[in-house]
Simulated assay, not measured.
Amino acid sequence: MKRAIGLIETKNIIKGISVADAMLKSANVDLIMAHSVCPGKYFIMVGGDVGAVQNAVRSGKATGGNENIVDDIVLSNIHPDVFHALSGCSEVKEIKSLGVIESYSVASAILAADTAVKSATVQLIEVRLARGMGGKSLVTLSGEVGAVTAAVRAGSNAIQDSGFLIGDLVIAAPHQGLHKALF
């Protein structure tokens, strides 16, 4: 498991590919994922030691230029459940309470998910990254209503000042049919 991850989201695909190349050339990091996201943006995630990831993100930002970067972040000690939620591999048998955080950027959604799962005993269901959603990202989680409320509040607060938070929602006892609609 990597000690840190670094993320950069660019406004266009060509610049994103160039940023990914610069990030990988600048430091001893591994490419975790890189792909286009809606609407024509590009997202790069690298992992490695904290210093190497910080260097890669600095290099990527310099290559991309401020005018082309939507968002970026370096997270050390990311919660392992975030990776399961990113890949859609979280197994959810029952939704006790449902928490949702919606954001305008990929990086802010991942920060919100990591903060939420570290703040309370909840299960991340999914971190959906701006594919087919007009550039928005979505974090969903479940657990006891008090824990879900605390986790959603913490995740939303973590991205509130960035301007990327669209909103959040807690449903104490979602209808059984909602589970099928969401997943």
Rank of each mutant, 00 (worst) to 15 (best):
M23D: 05
E126P: 11
M133N: 13
T115W: 14
Y42E: 05
A22Q: 09
S18V: 13
I14K: 10
A56I: 08
S108T: 06
L141Q: 10
G99E: 04
A173V: 15
P80N: 12
A20C: 13
G143N: 06
N77E: 09
L86P: 01
Y42R: 02
S137R: 00
N66Q: 12
A172H: 08
R128D: 05
R128L: 07
G48K: 01
A181C: 09
N157D: 11
M45F: 00
L111S: 00
I95K: 02
R128Y: 12
L31M: 11
I78K: 00
R131G: 00
L129F: 07
D168A: 08
N68P: 12
T115V: 10
K136C: 06
D114V: 06
I44D: 03
Q160Y: 14
I110N: 01
H35D: 04
D71F: 09
K15Q: 13
I166N: 12
A158V: 08
I78G: 00
L124G: 03
R3D: 06
V148M: 11
A151G: 12
A56K: 04
V106N: 00
S87Q: 14
N68L: 13
G143F: 06
I32G: 02
A109Y: 01
V19K: 03
V82G: 00
L7H: 01
Q54S: 08
V19A: 08
A109C: 09
A151W: 07
N28K: 04
V53T: 08
V46D: 00
G99Y: 01
S108I: 05
V19R: 03
V152A: 13
I32E: 01
I78S: 00
M23V: 05
A52R: 06
S18Y: 15
V74I: 15
I8R: 03
S108H: 04
F183K: 08
G155N: 02
T121E: 11
K180F: 02
V139A: 01
G6F: 00
A113S: 15
K11C: 05
V50A: 08
L24R: 03
